[in-house]
Design a protein around this nucleic acid. Structure first.
Length: 192
DNA sequence: CTCTCGATGTTCT
DNA sequence: GAACATCGAGAGG
């Protein structure tokens, strides 16, 4: 029997990124709503890590929907991605911002602050949830997976889309793709 | 409010 | 050796 998230992740990243808005991440005492995402899709996408091909680092991206792809950025920030599409096609959604629904105390302790500024950014998401590279390659459907992905407890009223952040190096064609999505009204990193 | 800059480690050239 | 899907502190307006 398929997990609920299967239908959301079994599609190309640009679509999966939109569909993931509102879904909830549960990890330990923290429950949070996904409010900003970005899609990275195929080796042709020059902003996608897999544009360099399948390497020890990027092989996680080829494993099909439901794998955690966690990597270190700028030597100090962990980034959380959920792989999507199908086996063999590198495709993933970066979780850029979340809204804490439960576990505010824990988040405050980990982040040194609470409120919107505590979780509006991809590095902040991992810090708030306590995610590190130890979770890379973890399967969402594995019995021992500490992270759960559950459907929205409140519907997504509307969504905005725009170009991805921090990928100018990929050139205008790819940096310009409107593959970033967010829910207006929630604490997101880039509200436009 | 905006802008600049440094921290820090893995990956690929 | 350069580049990098970032963050937060500090300076200046």
């Amino acid at each position: 029997m398929a997990a609920p998230w299967q239908t959301v992740l079994e599609r190309p990243a640009p679509q999966a990124a939109r569909a993931l808005l509102g879904w909830e991440l549960w990890l330990g005492e923290v429950r949070a709503r996904i409010v900003e995402t970005e899609g990275y899709h195929t080796e042709a996408d020059l902003a996608c890590h897999a544009s360099k091909g399948c390497t020890p680092r990027t092989e996680t991206l080829y494993t099909g929907p439901g794998t955690l792809y966690v990597y270190l950025c700028y030597g100090m920030h962990w980034m959380l991605n959920l792989t999507c599409c199908e086996v063999g096609i590198p495709s993933a959604v970066l979780i850029r911002s979340i809204a804490v629904l439960e576990g505010d105390q824990v988040v405050r302790q980990r982040r040194g602050r609470s409120g919107p500024q505590a979780t509006n950014g991809p590095g902040k998401v991992c810090a708030a949830l306590g995610i590190t590279g130890a979770l890379n390659r973890q399967r969402l459907d594995a019995a021992d997976c500490p992270l759960a992905l559950l459907p929205p407890s409140r519907p997504v009223r509307r969504a905005q889309r725009g170009p991805r952040v921090g990928v100018a190096y990929a050139g205008s064609e790819w940096a310009g793709k409107p593959w970033r999505f967010w829910e207006p009204g929630w604490p997101v990193a880039s509200p436009r």
